[in-house]
Design a protein around this nucleic acid. Sequence first.
DNA 1: ATGGTAGGACACCTA
Length: 281
Amino acid sequence: MLCIASWNVNSVRKRMHQVERLVDDTGADIICLQETKCSEAAFPAAALAELGYPHQAYAGQSGYNGVAILSKLPLTAIQRHHHCGRDDARHISARVAFGGDTVTIHSLYVPAGGQIPDMELNPKFAHKLKFVDAVGDYFAASHGLRDLAVVAGDFNIAPLPADVWDHRKMSRIVTHTPIEVEALERMKRSLYFIDALREVVAADDPVFTWWSYRAADWQAANKGRRLDHIWVTPALKAHIAAVEILSDVRHWQPPSDHVPVVLKLRARTALETPAGTHHHF
DNA sequence: ATGGTAGGACACCTA
């Protein structure tokens, strides 16, 4: 079994105790982080290695953004990706061994997009939509349709009506507007990705991964959104063993406003060969 | 229609 957790920590340095608790609770083989909010020099690499993750890929900038992949298993082909001509630390990938093959893990942090859902009035919103299209183009160009790949992260878009607390109200709010949902759908079609959580939770069952800091009582109000996702390529669909949103983590003090999503992939057996590979005896 | 909170770096931006 390969266990992959993804979490927008909102500052990795502020959240080290909670990362340790996540490790204790899940024993994840791989942890994808977003919004680490520190430069590479300030990244707590030694402390995370001490927690059992000596293999690390991370990109950061002081104060904003920042993504990482922490692994118990060796990482190869570490790549930092830039989109839309910016050097924001929003996308990093690495490969890890998986049942005689390798799976590419992507940790992705999509721009939030500001407050106003209008491309003309709000450059942040325009950038968000361009970024999502650029990531889709990148996936289509860099992977084959039979590749094993996992894309985990804060996509900052809640695509389904049941991914927000009120579909009608939220349709005019950035993260759930039709134009963002369409952009995310295009990104998803780039490699015919599978939304892992919705493989195990019905499409009309409300589930959230984010609750605003600004609510007096986030749990009582429960005005959440599902902004964090783990997608897998079709070749991995049959290997999904479990997918879980760790909602309790929102109580861990001091909390991130996001909670982790965890995917367990059943190991490929020796009998399985990559689809399309023909053996001649 | 507005303001509510958090994190980081440096007076104000990001989410």
